[in-house]
Design a protein around this nucleic acid. Sequence first.
DNA 1: ATACAACTTGGAGTTGACTCTAAGTCAAGT
DNA 2: ACTTGACTTAGAGTCAACTCCAAGTTGTAT
Lengths: 130, 130
Amino acid sequence: MTIKEVCEKFNITADTLRYYERVGVIPEVHRTAGGIRDFTEEDIGWVKTMTCFRSAGVPVEMLIEYRRLFELGDDTFIARCNLLKEAREKILEEKKRYDDALKKLNYKIAKYEEACQTGVLNWDDETLAK
Amino acid sequence: MTIKEVCEKFNITADTLRYYERVGVIPEVHRTAGGIRDFTEEDIGWVKTMTCFRSAGVPVEMLIEYRRLFELGDDTFIARCNLLKEAREKILEEKKRYDDALKKLNYKIAKYEEACQTGVLNWDDETLAK
DNA sequence: ATACAACTTGGAGTTGACTCTAAGTCAAGT
DNA sequence: ACTTGACTTAGAGTCAACTCCAAGTTGTAT
C-alpha cells in the first residue's frame, strides 16, 4: 500500500507518517526496489494502533517507548503492560475532565438558549456564570 | 485572593494565569493599591470556567473569542451560544476517539496480562497486534 | 528598618508535534 | 524520450500554549 493510500485510510498526512517512522513510532516501512514506501499489512497494523492512541492524546514519547520495548522481545511483556496501563490512566483522567466540561457546557448552552428566547441570562449558580 | 491561592485552587501556574489575563482568556484581574493581583469572586468565576474548558481541550483562541463576545454585551447571546455548541461538538468528537483508544487499550492490557502468566502473546485479530 | 519571600512587567525561550522546503529520484502515460 | 506527478531525504520552520528570565517593587516578619 502506498503512503498516499495509508494517509487516506487513517486520515493523516504523509509528512506525519514519515515523521512517525523517523522517530520510531512505527517501524521502518517496507520499500520497493526504487526506495519508495510500500506498507505491508504489518506496517499498517502499527499505523492503525499508533494513530488510534495518538488521537487519544497518548504522547509520541510513550509510543516510541512501547515500540522500543516491542523490539526488545518477549522479556518486556510486563514493561509493555505497565506502559499501556499508564496510558489508560491518562486517558481515563482526561475523559473525566471532558465530562466535567461537557456538563458545564450543556448547562451554559441551555441557559443561553433560554436567553435567546427571553432576552435575559439567568444563572442559578453565580460561580457558573461568565 | 492572591495569585498563589488561585493557582493552588485550580492547579495551574502563576505564569499561566498571567498569560490568560494578558491574552484575554480572563478579564483584567482586580489589583491592590500596590498593583498586586487580588482576585475577586468574579475573577475566580472566570478562572473556574476557563480552566475547565481549557482542560477539556477547548483552544485558547476560542476562549478569547467567548470573552470578547461577553464584553460586547447582550447582543451576542446567539454568537456565544453558537460558540459553546461548537466547543461541545469538538469535545464530543474527542471523547469518541478516547473511547476507541480505551477499548483497544483494555483489549491489549488483557492480552498482556495473560501473556505475563503464560509467557505467550496471542491476538484474536492480527490487525490489533503490535 | 531590614531582610526576604512573593509579587510585578515586558519580552524571550521552550516544548511537543508536526509541517514545510529544496533538491533530487521514481513511475506511469503519451 | 519526455513530461507529469508522486515519491524520496535532510533539515529547517511553524504553531499553540505555555514557561522562563531579568530587573525591579511590595508586603510581612523579625
